[in-house]
Simulated assay, not measured.
Amino acid sequence: MAVLVTGGAGYIGSHTVAALVERGEEIVVIDNLQQGHREAVIGGKLYVGDLRDADVLDTVFKENNIDAVIHFAANSLVGESMKLPGKYYHNNVYGTLCLLEKMNEYNVKKIVFSSTAATYGEPENVPIDELDRTVPTNAYGETKLAMEKMMKWFDTAHGIKFVSLRYFNAAGAHESGRIGEDHAPETHLVPIVLQAALGQRPHISVFGDDYGTPDGTCIRDYIHVSDLADAHVLAVDRLRGGADSAVYNLGNGQGFSVKEVIEIARKVTSREIPMIIEPRRAGDPAVLVASSSRARNELGWNPKRNQLEDIIRSAWTWHQANPGGYSAKD
């Protein structure tokens, strides 16, 4: 039996493929390579195609004996989602509808969904709990919540069981050095800081240093990408064991401020990394940290790489070896 990984050529998807390879799973990947990279898929069978293409999905399900799906394929830029909400609804929500309909048609009844803590919007509690209200403040988070709700109703109507994993910031790179983070444009703090360390950016912008936090900058949850990959694999195991549908937060257990990330990056890289304080961005909460106690208790998830220095060091190793990202190898 095979695991289908949608968006498996992307950052977190490719690391999840690597985790599945390490345990000897049969893997099928579908990715339209809009943001993913062919070189990032280090195992399994890759189909280049879009979830909204019924012929592509028919081919994938007919040619492979799939028993579970891990669903990453989605657009994920918050700022872009506010300018182009239609793009996000069409790709994220409609794409998921196409996938779920084909899963039902081919009697595939298990799906693990890579969701986001952006489904919560402005947090009412810190750390955020799975039972907290979900009121997204951007179109990206709204589409992810719509995808979760769609899965709930497909479970009710068709018995497709799902696990939705909500988290904030993935960072780091695979210990093998073969895969890492390469987005265009890059919007994530850790790779942006490392680009500054490499001289690819003149400085790192810090948006606000007057928040009610110890050093005045925003605090966020950072999780090593390989720990996130492990959580997705554990969720597949839970569904294979007959568990009911569920939602889990994934968090490191502590938050790190923007200045902490920069300071540790300076230590890891031995580079200056110029920093400029700029005005706050609208809608940036002071602290976003998710509670992962339920995932630890029910999935047996135990992050192994939870030191920020180790996370940044793994990313630095990859970025030094691949300063142009995957494109330098094309």
Rank of each mutant, 00 (worst) to 15 (best):
D230V: 13
N249K: 05
N252P: 02
V206A: 14
D215K: 00
S205W: 11
P214R: 05
T217V: 03
I219Y: 06
D182R: 06
L250C: 08
D210T: 10
Y211H: 03
N249I: 10
T187H: 07
F207T: 04
T213D: 11
G180T: 03
G177S: 02
A229Q: 12
L239V: 04
A231V: 15
G199L: 11
L198C: 08
D227L: 04
A246Q: 07
S245Y: 05
T187R: 08
F207Y: 11
G251N: 08
V193Q: 13
Y222K: 09
G208M: 10
A235V: 14
G177K: 00
D230C: 14
S176M: 03
L194M: 10
Q195E: 01
N252S: 12
L239H: 08
H224N: 01
C218V: 10
L250N: 09
A173D: 13
V225G: 15
R220E: 14
H174L: 04
Q200D: 06
R240G: 15
N249C: 05
A197T: 03
A184I: 01
L234H: 09
V225H: 13
L198G: 09
R201N: 11
V236F: 07
I219K: 05
L239N: 08
G172F: 02
L189E: 10
P202K: 07
C218A: 13
N252K: 04
G212D: 15
Q254V: 09
Y222R: 06
N252W: 04
V247W: 14
S205V: 08
G242E: 13
Y248F: 13
S205K: 10
E186P: 09
V206Y: 13
P202E: 14
E175N: 02
Q195A: 00
I192A: 13
R201P: 03
A246S: 05
V190T: 13
G199W: 10
G212I: 14
T187S: 15
L250R: 03
A171I: 01
A171K: 05
I204Y: 08
L228M: 00
G177N: 01
H203D: 12
I204P: 02
D182H: 11
D227H: 02
Y248T: 08
G253R: 08
I219T: 04
A246Y: 06
A184V: 01
T217S: 10
I204N: 01
I179R: 03
G253N: 08
R240D: 15
R238C: 13
R178A: 14
A184Y: 05
A231N: 15
D210G: 07
D244I: 05
V233Q: 11
G242F: 06
N169Q: 15
A196G: 12
G172Q: 06
L239Y: 06
N249M: 05
G180P: 01
V190F: 05
I219E: 11
E186T: 04
H188I: 03
E175G: 00
I204D: 03
P191A: 01
A231K: 15
V193D: 11
I204F: 07
E186H: 07
R238T: 14
Y211L: 04
T217W: 06
